[in-house]
Amino acid sequence: MRSRRRTPYFLTFIIAWICFGIVGFLAGYYLHPLFNSDTPEIAIDENEKLPYNDYLHLDEYKENTESEPSDTPVTSYEDSIGTDTKVVFRTLFTSCQSIRDDVIEPLEEIIGLKEGGFRSFAEANFTDWQIVRFSKDEVILFRRKEQICPNHFFVSEQDGFIAIFRFNEAGERILIEKTSLPISVLPAIDQEKLKRGILLNTRDEVNSLLEDYSS
Score class of each variant (00 low, 15 high):
Leu50Thr: 04
Phe25Glu: 02
Asp204Trp: 09
Leu31Ala: 12
Arg4Ala: 07
Val132Ser: 11
Pro182Asp: 07
Ile14Phe: 07
Ser135Met: 03
Glu41Gly: 03
Val155Cys: 00
Glu123Asn: 13
Thr72Gly: 05
Phe118Gly: 02
Asp159Gln: 05
Glu123His: 10
Ile176Ser: 14
Thr75Met: 11
Asn168Cys: 04
Thr91Trp: 15
Asp204Pro: 02
Pro150Met: 12
Gln191Gly: 04
Leu200Arg: 07
Phe118Thr: 10
Arg173Tyr: 06
Val139Lys: 00
Pro69Glu: 03
Asp102Met: 14
Leu181Trp: 01
Gly28Leu: 05
Asp128Lys: 08
Phe121Trp: 15
Leu58Ile: 15
Leu181Gly: 02
Val132Trp: 03
Thr202Pro: 05
Ile22Arg: 08
Ser80Ile: 04
Arg133His: 13
Gly82Pro: 08
Arg173Gln: 15
Lys145Ile: 08
Cys19Tyr: 06
Asn168Arg: 05
Thr179Ser: 09
Asn36Gly: 15
Gln130Asn: 04
Asp38Ala: 14
Arg203Asn: 11
Met1Leu: 03
Leu141Glu: 09
Phe153Met: 08
Leu113Met: 15
Ser214Met: 09
Cys149Pro: 02
Ser70Val: 10
Glu205Phe: 00
Gln97Arg: 07
Val103Asp: 10
Gly21Ile: 03
Ala188Ile: 01
Thr65Val: 05
Glu109Trp: 02
Gly24Asp: 06
Phe35Pro: 04
Glu109Asn: 12
Ile148Thr: 13
Lys136Trp: 07
Ile183Tyr: 06
Gly21Leu: 08
Ile81Lys: 14
Gly160Asp: 01
Phe10Lys: 12
Lys178Gly: 08
Tyr55Glu: 05
Ile162Ala: 00
Phe118His: 02
Asp101Leu: 10
His152Ala: 10
Ser67Glu: 15
Lys195Glu: 04
Asp59Leu: 02
Ala163Asp: 06
Trp17Gly: 07
Arg2Ala: 14
Leu175Gln: 12
Ile111Tyr: 02
Trp17Arg: 03
Ile164Asn: 10
Leu56Asn: 11
Ile110Gln: 10
Lys114Arg: 12
Thr85Pro: 03
Leu92Gln: 03
Gly117Lys: 12
Gly21Ser: 09
Lys49Pro: 01
Arg196Pro: 01
